[in-house]
Design a protein around this nucleic acid. Structure first.
Lengths: 131, 131
DNA sequence: CTATTTAATGCGACTATGTTGCTTTAGAAG
DNA sequence: CTTCTAAAGCAACATAGTCGCATTAAATAG
């Protein structure tokens, strides 16, 4: 796997690799506790959060907050196109408790003098596998 | 023994009135701690949450979870039109730390076999007053 | 190779948000 | 007034996420 070292100062560590590996294989947005459960090595909670947030800073992952109030981290598959990577809907299945990125883009118009910095859109229900 | 009392109605209490009053006067979506700070009487934290959740059940308020992971409660102004009351964008201003309901409706299409039960869309940035 | 630098990690403490169980209070109906 | 029970208060608990600080270990210079 290629290193995602955008910032020269980042070091590649087993922890980073393991976290990214789990998220990649799962193919969904994952929370810290889900990652900790699924990972085969023992990584401290705080460390996982720091790794995840660093990945977000570097544009490797993006963060979504679901209606359960938890942060979920997903791969940025179209990170060359920032707009596309941020402004899409996410779907949270109440049955299998997973969150996935939908191909559906979020379109909106806002009143005058409003500035949007971030978009957080999550649809909740049952996914195609749990139908 | 009176077993005919099936419909247990809500009771009107000073707490309920006060909470609803604050939210109405503020005109925005409010979190529990914001309500507790702004209210003039002393109400227990758990009680405020219970009041708010009851209002949600009764269709008086609706709940949004912002990207800060907190629950915000706003008046349902068009609750006769369920679709409209749920599916609108919310705007969270990072400066004045308030959340308001936008008139912008959320439109989306989802893949086959997905069922949507809830929509949670929050835009974050600076509002017209903090511009 | 060793030595140095400092990013990354582990640990513990801490804050905040929200919920639950249990007891007490009080609203409304009889 | 009495009864029934929703609602409120309190305390404990659960979970999520962050932060300070000491230690570890990548990257690199020598």
């Amino acid at each position: 796997m290629q290193t995602y070292r955008i910032n020269m100062k980042r070091r590649s560590t087993p922890t980073k690799e393991a976290v990214l590996d789990v998220i990649t294989k799962t193919g969904k947005a994952m929370s810290q506790d889900a990652i900790e459960k699924k990972i085969n090595i023992d990584i401290n909670r705080a460390t996982i959060y720091r790794v995840l947030n660093r990945f977000c800073e570097d544009g490797v992952l993006h963060k979504v907050v679901a209606e359960d109030g938890k942060q979920y981290f997903a791969l940025c598959l179209d990170c060359d196109n920032i707009h596309k990577s941020i402004n899409h809907f996410h779907f949270r299945c109440v049955k299998c408790e997973t969150i996935e990125c939908l191909p559906t883009e979020v379109n909106f118009s806002i009143p005058d003098k409003y500035t949007v910095q971030n978009v957080n859109c999550v649809l909740t229900g049952t996914c195609k596998d749990c139908f």
